[in-house]
Structures are given as C-alpha cells and as structure tokens.
Design a protein around this nucleic acid. Structure first.
Lengths: 124, 124
DNA sequence: AGCCTGTATTGACGTTCATTGATGCAACCT
DNA sequence: AGGTTGCATCAATGAACGTCAATACAGGCT
C-alpha cells in the first residue's frame, strides 16, 4: 500500500527541463499530464490541499477527509487512489485508520517545472 | 478573440493562499481545477510547452504547432481553445495566420500556488 | 468576383471518468 | 466467536472528454 506507481516528478532527478525551457517530447508530456490530470478535479484538489496543509511530514486520517465532502465514502476513496497513482500522496494503515500524506518534494518539483524563470544552476 | 474567459490565476491578486497553506474552499478548488485539467492532457501540455518555449512575449503560429502532432487540425484547434478558456494562453489573428502566446505570469503564479515553502512577504 | 490557404466550429462516435450501492477486507471490542 | 467500525474494491450508469470528417469562416491572391 505504500508504493507509489508514478515516478515522473522523481525524487532523484529533475524529471524535465521545465515547461518553458524546451518543447516536451511525447513521453515526458504523457507522464506529466497524469499528474496535472490528477489535480484537475475540484475534489482531488481539495483533498490535496487538506493533506498538504498539514505541512512536511503531516498526515491526515481518511476519517477527517470524507466528512468534508458531500460525496459517498467510496468516491473519496477513489479520488485518493488516483492521487496516489499520480505519485502525489501515499498512505499507511495504522490500526483502524488509514493516514495519507503528501510525498515530500513533489509539489515543489511540480512548481519548479512550471516556473518560467529557470532557477540558477546549483553548482555545488 | 483576445479576451480570456478565466481569471483564476488572476493578474491582479494572488488568487489563493497556496495549496499547502490552508484547505481550499469549493469555489477556489473548482476554478483552479479547470487550469490543472487543461494541463492534464499530453497534447495540451506539449502545446503549452511549445508556446512557452518562445519565452516572454514569444508567439507561435498555429501552422507550426499542428504538424508536430499526429492529429487532425480541428483537434489541435480544439485543444488550443481549451487552453485559452483556462486562461493560460491567448491568440490573435494577423492576416492569414493565428498566433498564440502564453499569458504573462500565469505559469509563475501557478508555480507559486504549488510551492510549499511560502515565499517571503513582499513588503515594499 | 472567384479560388485557395489557414483556422475555427459543428456533429457524431467511442472511450474515459465521476459517482453510487453493494460488497469485501482489516482491525478493534466485547 | 461474533459484531462493529473504517476503508477499499467491484459493477453499473450517466456525463464528460478526445478525436475526426465535414463544414464554415477569414484573409490573401489572381
């Protein structure tokens, strides 16, 4: 349950040169589109926001997420699964409850990908 | 043709506190989701990249975009329309050709919205 | 005027997606 | 063991999406 399926905005390397640096090839575009598509739903965006608001290392129990929506529990579970498959969040069961957190660095890497003013080269 | 429909990542103000600052309300989430949804397709992401690669003030003729894809011309036109409705790009007809450009600042504002480490308050 | 080229719109089709009720599984509690 | 709660999966349905062929529109050219 704690392995994420996508590695686009990978931990290790800068996945892509940045949206404005050079035209994306088909593969890069396909992988990155999955991440944006995951964020392209109001419910998932709110879920992400609720989880991310806990800060680095923060966690949220599903039992706190579900009642915030006028949606059935399976629907929330489905959206959380999509976010997880997009490599944005991960989860762990602890006893009765399941906790979700934002994978560290993902959002900042996404942001860096969108930024037009390329950050200065880290030479060290 | 040169008015964009969405004003989420508005020029004027910081649309939203940032994804990780506080949970988004439904309205903010709905508006922002439209932008991410627009980027959530490989073709549109490549289109954005091709346009954004021209840099600030840069333009691309549709006649340069279309042949880069194995898609019909109406399909490309449709995707460009969606990007425009999302408030990401704009276009202008000049004679026979139509030129597209990235609306200034949109990508950087999107990036700022995703960034977890909130930028220092600009006091000046 | 007429034709040609470049681009947008329309209408249709197949696929994917969001949602739900029903069900299944895991862990706690008597 | 049996019952209960929290969450995930399944199957089905209706809506939204990506795509194309056909068509319409705009501007240049002869």
């Amino acid at each position: 349950m704690s392995k994420h399926e996508l590695e686009v905005i990978g931990q290790d390397a800068a996945c892509c040169p940045g949206l404005s640096v050079a035209p994306l090839d088909e593969d890069q575009a396909s992988e990155l589109a999955k991440v944006f598509k995951a964020l392209g739903d109001p419910v998932r965006l709110r879920l992400m926001s609720m989880i991310a608001s806990r800060g680095e290392g923060g966690e949220v129990c599903v039992c706190e997420l579900t009642p915030a929506f006028d949606l059935s529990q399976p629907t929330i579970s489905h959206h959380l699964k999509l976010l997880r498959q997009a490599g944005l969040i991960d989860c762990e069961r602890r006893g009765t409850w399941v906790y979700y957190w934002v994978l560290p660095g993902v959002l900042d890497r996404l942001a860096a990908f969108l930024t037009t003013t390329q950050p200065a080269e880290v030479t060290a």
